[in-house]
Write a protein that binds this DNA or RNA. Structure first.
Lengths: 169, 169
DNA sequence: CGTTAATATTTAACGTGTTATATAAATTGG
DNA sequence: CCAATTTATATAACACGTTAAATATTAACG
């Protein structure tokens, strides 16, 4: 016998949950948009052996000199465990350097090296071309609106009442 | 001596790339919004030992019976390698079942079990409450606009001229 | 001071994303 | 009908996300 359609033709004991369609799933919509956008940038980074996250860290390091790991994690939206691995990899490639802070021996001072800056300078124009493509395809105004909405959404969900209570049954 | 500020006080040989600020990084904005949203849903799923992706697969399976793996991957925006692992895990927990298609022995027919439906029914109301919270905090109209923009962005980047050419130097 | 609590960072374990490759079945072409 | 190509799925390898725990240093307190 064929094994098609097993023993589960909608058991009436298991109530049909009227689940919202994927088209109205907010995490899904955000994911797909992000995938589409990253499809434009990933090849550029991959051509230089950088992951998206490594790129974010390098970028953040150009805005000042001598960050601590925690600051870097917040700036680049990368968790500390991931950042720890990323810094190890970037240091091995001599794209960043670490020192220790005088006043706090736990904290590391992380800076980008000249090689790191050179790599960024190599990639930056490609990145900007990606943005130009996206802007051309999507429109300047709609893009601005999207930025605003995304920022407002993150803000209004991050502020105030933090997590949802999960009552165990 | 202290190891602060190593040997890289802005080497003039490494040109300062005028990188766009993080606040105008589209992948970053999408990521942060998604993180904020998932912060509302992750605890619910975690309380039932489900990852976000496992949840997506289960959800997709409620829309019809007997999917092939490839269809499921497209529906839930999960890559085939990931899906393969996820199906193995869900099958072990008896939340899904696999059969083989008569006409094509390569393809598997994947269905949700009664236990799987029961789990969904258990979680669904919590999920809807999360959406209610988000709608209340963000507003119905803005949310609708955001959905529309996200969908349009993904569409306009996925259609037409696919990848950016990466000229190796 | 010395003991405890808080902070900064790392490591571990597991699941997923991405890329490349492998396996197996179906299709195509000769 | 058999060899070569395509298609569906699985596996491997490496990096990251998440959670929890470990380590090391500083601060706080008695």
């Amino acid at each position: 016998m064929s094994a098609r359609s097993p023993a589960n033709s909608v058991d009436p004991d298991a109530p049909r949950a009227p689940l919202r369609a994927f088209s109205r799933s907010l995490p899904m919509a955000l994911l797909k948009a992000r995938e589409a956008v990253m499809g434009r940038f990933r090849p550029i980074l991959h051509a230089h052996d950088l992951t998206e996250q490594q790129w974010r860290v390098l970028r953040a390091l150009t805005s000042a000199d001598g960050f601590r790991a925690g600051e870097l994690a917040r700036l680049s939206s990368i968790s500390m465990p991931s950042l720890s691995r990323i810094l190890r990899a970037l240091e091995k490639r001599a794209l960043i350097e670490r020192g220790v802070e005088d006043k706090d021996l736990r904290a590391a001072q992380i800076s980008i090296t000249a090689s790191g800056r050179a790599l960024i300078a190599l990639i930056a124009p490609h990145s900007e071309r990606g943005y130009a493509d996206i802007t051309a395809a999507f429109g300047d105004e709609r893009l601005a609106t999207l930025y605003r909405l995304l920022d407002e959404l993150a803000t209004c969900l991050t502020d105030g009442t933090e997590p949802v209570e999960v009552d165990e049954e």
